[in-house]
Amino acid sequence: MQRVNMIMAESPGLITICLLGYLLSAECTVFLDHENANKILNRPKRYNSGKLEEFVQGNLERECMEEKCSFEEAREVFENTERTTEFWKQYVDGDQCESNPCLNGGSCKDDINSYECWCPFGFEGKNCELDVTCNIKNGRCEQFCKNSADNKVVCSCTEGYRLAENQKSCEPAVPFPCGRVSVSQTSKLTRAETVFPDVDYVNSTEAETILDNITQSTQSFNDFTRVVGGEDAKPGQFPWQVVLNGKVDAFCGGSIVNEKWIVTAAHCVETGVKITVVAGEHNIEETEHTEQKRNVIRIIPHHNYNAAINKYNHDIALLELDEPLVLNSYVTPICIADKEYTNIFLKFGSGYVSGWGRVFHKGRSALVLQYLRVPLVDRATCLRSTKFTIYNNMFCAGFHEGGRDSCQGDSGGPHVTEVEGTSFLTGIISWGEECAMKGKYGIYTKVSRYVNWIKEKTKLT
């Protein structure tokens, strides 16, 4: 034993070699072989497995989906700052455009905790909710729209109204504003409101030439003092309507412009014939205590009207009353817009006519005020429907199939267009061939041609 100890002390290297040989010859039971080890760690190889990531292109799944990435790591994937920024906006807080917040056709661009709407022409605001041009839906104005110097929408209202708090709607500024039905039992019968379409306001006024200088022999019209197929109006439903009495009662109609003036057809009036105007009328054979009678003290036909040349060209006249009318729910003026808007309103496509005229061709006159909704007829169809001249200051309205029309005794009465609950004068009943005849239409004086003249002559002093 002493000898062994001496050998170990003198030859430590020998001992180490012996131990190493023993270990190498022993069977290893701690580690699995290569094949079995792979069965336990069965993990798919990654895209760049075996390579240094710093030297390969980034992978979106590896960089940002398996674990949260930084902007720089995302930049490695896209290799483009702009594309990385677009991805980053949604990656950080989701897609803010998912709810489609942009209105009126706006395009949404996502941002971090926010979004941006790219608005089409005519709109602005956070969600493109603000109209900035009158060309689109009248700028959301209830009545009139004008573009300011910086191309912003400025709404306005006709006389007797003021802008509401929203700067879009119009509200009454006087007790009985024009064009409004205020009798409670008839307010439910107000005709369907007309909503502004998209309009090209630059070209809204037709490029028409008034044929002022045409000389033409007097034409022989049949029954051209021209509501057939209409309905009984309720008291106060058309408070701007008046009836004219002269040699015979209810020979023509008219509309209240203001307390002192009536507008009617020029062919209705004769110099030297006494005319009485009755406002607030409903049943011409009954006294309903809503009527107001006034005498006409002055007749002003349009300066281009000449019955000797043509009885229905420039067929418009103004009547001055001896005493002002007292405005109330049964006696209310009709609204008159400017030339541009009167023309736009007419193009809405349908209007209402009213009167006490004959209820059928050569038949009896109506006792109760009649009204009828009539569609506008395109000019080409209008011209083809008659052998008589249709001037540019006239328009056609009615039904091709016949059966409904204005008729004798309705002449001078109103053709009105309702705009968001307020009625505007767009025409004056003038003439036609018979009444409600198939293929024939009622012919009306186009008020847009005469609004400046009306307003100039009827100013209240």
Rank of each mutant, 00 (worst) to 15 (best):
I17T: 06
F71I: 06
A149Y: 12
Y371Q: 13
C178S: 00
V277T: 03
P235Q: 09
K438D: 15
A380T: 12
P239H: 00
V181L: 09
F55V: 11
C117P: 02
V243G: 04
P197Y: 12
N328G: 07
F238K: 04
H314E: 04
S107C: 06
K137W: 08
R226P: 08
E401L: 10
Y91H: 08
Q143N: 02
N147R: 09
S169N: 11
C134L: 03
G50T: 02
V56G: 03
A250I: 08
L189T: 10
E98T: 13
N203V: 07
V56F: 00
F55Q: 15
S204I: 06
L19Y: 10
I210C: 09
D150N: 13
I334M: 01
V451W: 03
G355K: 09
E76H: 02
I334A: 04
V154H: 08
E76V: 00
E456L: 08
N245Q: 09
N245L: 08
G179A: 01
F31C: 07
G409C: 11
V248S: 13
W356S: 03
N138K: 07
V77C: 06
G398S: 05
T287S: 13
I299P: 03
L369V: 07
N258Q: 03
K274F: 06
E53L: 00
V419Q: 05
R180A: 05
R373M: 08
R449G: 15
Q185V: 13
L52D: 09
R191F: 09
G439Y: 06
N452D: 15
S217W: 09
T332F: 04
S156C: 05
C382E: 02
T85P: 03
V248R: 13
I390E: 05
Q57S: 01
T186R: 12
E10L: 11
E129P: 04
C141T: 00
E86R: 09
C117E: 02
E76M: 01
P235F: 07
V227L: 12
K455H: 12
E142Q: 14
T461Q: 10
H303N: 09
R3Y: 12
G427V: 01
V30E: 08
E67L: 00
A366N: 15
L369M: 15
A337S: 03
G58H: 05
F121I: 07
G351P: 03
I309C: 06
D322M: 03
K126F: 12
S204G: 10
Q143L: 02
K362W: 04
G106I: 02
L321Y: 00
I299M: 11
C18I: 13
G351W: 02
Y341L: 06
K293L: 11
T276I: 10
Q96K: 13
N213Y: 08
Q370T: 07
K459S: 15
C155L: 00
V331C: 05
K188C: 06
G402M: 15
K188W: 12
K293R: 15
